[in-house]
Simulated assay, not measured.
Amino acid sequence: MASPTSIGVAYQSRKDGQFLRHLTLPLYEQDGTPSWYEYRRDSGVDLAALPIQLPDDVKCPCVQDFADRDTGSFVPGLDLTIIGMAFQHSRETPYPIWKGARVASEPGYLAMGVPQVLIDTAGVPGMSGSPVYRVSRGVKVSREAAKAVENFRAGGDGEALEALVGLALSQAEEGPVLSFVGVYAGSTGSRDLEKLSLGRMFMASLVDLLVVERQRGVNPFPPEFYGVSSPDSAAPSV
């Protein structure tokens, strides 16, 4: 057993079919302070964030680049999809898995005493921390069209209106539309959830609070507990 000091990440290159060398993200600052932030773990919220700086040659779409925050009503039975790396990121499995699910508990109440939502999909360890999206019907448009709509909503000036009018939105094809609703946390550690093939999800609003409050994480078994003196020491990475 060991307390890790870093995380190894494989990023896809902007050149199709190529990967960059594994990057090592330290989990601790030089003074031993945890690099990650977490949100009220004592309340049962299994949610943490690690700030990162992406290299220029990385191909890595962000949640906010292609999906808006969900603002519709959130009730049991809604269709969701979890997009994450169920398999080790490699040339053989370079892209994430889209795993379907539905809201299985009442979002307006605590689930098992924790501010979480249960979803009807089995826990997959590799997908913990993956974004969860609501799936609804809409129209598929180009990035250009989406940007024009965004600019018009933000400013509404003549130039934005002209760009919007010039788009053939009426010819857009119907298809699924994704809205970001939360983060998947699996069912690890709960036999009751595993029996029913249920997973947990923390709402996107908790992600907002995590980022705003920026509460530093706490490791009850830091590297020093295992004789690792600093983030630069040769300890296992996960």
Rank of each mutant, 00 (worst) to 15 (best):
A168H: 06
V45D: 07
A154R: 14
A163K: 13
P131V: 09
T71R: 12
D16M: 09
P176V: 03
T188W: 04
A104W: 00
E144W: 03
G32A: 11
A185T: 00
E224P: 08
H22N: 15
A160L: 01
A160Q: 06
S229D: 11
D192V: 04
K195S: 13
S179D: 10
D232G: 10
Y39R: 04
R153C: 14
P125N: 12
V75W: 00
Y226D: 15
V228Q: 05
F225A: 15
E150C: 12
S230F: 04
D46R: 04
S128D: 08
P61H: 03
K195R: 11
Q215M: 09
L80E: 01
Y11P: 07
S187N: 12
Q88M: 08
V75I: 10
I83H: 04
P96S: 12
R143G: 14
E92V: 10
D70E: 12
R14T: 11
Y11T: 12
P51F: 02
V212G: 04
T93W: 03
E29I: 00
K195D: 15
G186Q: 02
V238R: 07
M1Q: 06
M112Q: 14
T81V: 15
G44C: 05
V114S: 02
L50Q: 06
E29W: 00
R191C: 09
I97R: 11
V103L: 07
S170Y: 04
S136M: 13
A163D: 05
M85K: 06
V211D: 04
E29D: 13
I97N: 13
A10E: 03
P4F: 07
E159D: 06
R21K: 12
R102I: 03
G17Y: 00
Y39K: 07
L54N: 08
L196C: 11
F87A: 15
L27W: 00
E224M: 09
A160N: 03
K147Y: 02
V45W: 00
M203N: 09
S13P: 05
S197G: 05
